[in-house]
Nucleic acid binder design. Structure first.
Lengths: 142, 142
DNA sequence: TATTGACTTCGAGTTACTCGAACTTGCTAT
DNA sequence: ATAGCAAGTTCGAGTAACTCGAAGTCAATA
C-alpha cells in the first residue's frame, strides 16, 4: 500500500508542510516516484506512528532523531539498550502528562462551576482567581 | 506576602526569563519596588495559577491574553459569558489531553514490554515498528 | 492547448520562549 | 570608603518546530 503526501498527512492529522519537514530533516524515510514526488509505504506509517508517539510524550525532535539514529545503527545489545532507555524515559513523561492533564482538567472543572454559579446569579464574582483589583490592573496592551 | 522575581519563578517552576516575558507582554501584573525590581503578591500568584492552567490546556498566549483582557474589562454579563466560553473550550482541550496522554502511555507500555522481551533474549527484533529495512533506511544525518 | 491539482524547493515569518551582554542596586566584608 | 557579590534591570539576538507563500514542475483531463 502506497500513499501520496496528501494522503499520508491526512492519516496523521498533520499538514503536508510538516510531513515534508520531517522527511527533509531525515526523521521520516520516504521514496520518490519518477516525477520526484514523495511516496510513503506501510513502513513510513509505522515510523510515523513511533514519531507521533514520542512527540506525544513531549520528546524533542532531537531526541526522536537520536532514537531513529539508534534504530538504523547495526543492531547490538548496546544500541538496543540505549533505545530502551529512551523509551523508558519517554514513557515516564507520558504518565506525567496524564497526571498534569488530570489536575488541569480538575481546575478547569472548578472554574466552569464557578462561572456557572455567577452566571446563574447565585454569587457575585469576587472569589475568582484571575481578577485584578484596581491597583494591580495592568495597562491595556495591544 | 510579597515575592521577588526569583522566588516567584521558583514557585511555578518557571525561569526568571519566562516570568519577565509574561510581565513584559502584560499577561502577569506586577508592581515594582523603589529600585525598579519586580515584586509579586498573592494576586500575582492567583493570576499565574490561571495562566499556568490555561497553558496546561494548550491555550496560546493570544488566547490567554484575550481571557485576561476580558477579566479587566468592566464586568458585565457579556464579558463574563465570553470568559466562561473560553474556559469551557479550554476544559475540553484538557480532557482531550488526558485521553491523548493515556493512549500515548499505553503505546509506550507496549514498546517497553517489547524491548524487555528482546533484551531478555526471548524474541528477535523483527516486529518492531520503527525499524527500517535496508532499502528505506535514510542517510545518516548529523 | 489550457487549465487544474498535486506536487517540488527555498526562503522568510511566527510563537513562545531562551540566552547573553552590559549595566544598576543594595548589602556585606575588609 | 571600597570592593565584591548576588540579585535585579533592559534590550537585542537566537532557537525549536513548525507555518506560510512564492515560483516553478508535471501529468491528466476538458
Amino acid at each position: 500500500m502506497l500513499y501520496t503526501l496528501k494522503q499520508f498527512a491526512e492519516m496523521f492529522n498533520a499538514t503536508e508542510h510538516t510531513i515534508r519537514y520531517y522527511t527533509d530533516i531525515n526523521l521520516l524515510p520516504c521514496q520518490r516516484d519518477k516525477s520526484n514526488h514523495r511516496i510513503f509505504n506501510e513502513e513510513s506509517v509505522n515510523w510515523m506512528q513511533g514519531i507521533a508517539c514520542l512527540k506525544g510524550c513531549g520528546a524533542s525532535i532531537e531526541v526522536i532523531k537520536e532514537y531513529c539514529n539508534l534504530c538504523r545503527l547495526p543492531e547490538s545489545r548496546e544500541t538496543l539498550y540505549a533505545r530502551y532507555q529512551i523509551i523508558l524515559r519517554q514513557r515516564e513523561q507520558a504518565y506525567k502528562r496524564i497526571e498534569e492533564a488530570k489536575a488541569t482538567a480538575a481546575y478547569m472543572d472548578e472554574k466552569v462551576q464557578h462561572y456557572e454559579q455567577i452566571l446563574s446569579g447565585l454569587i457575585p464574582d469576587d472569589s475568582n482567581p484571575g481578577t485584578w483589583t484596581e491597583d494591580t490592573r495592568p495597562e491595556k496592551h495591544e
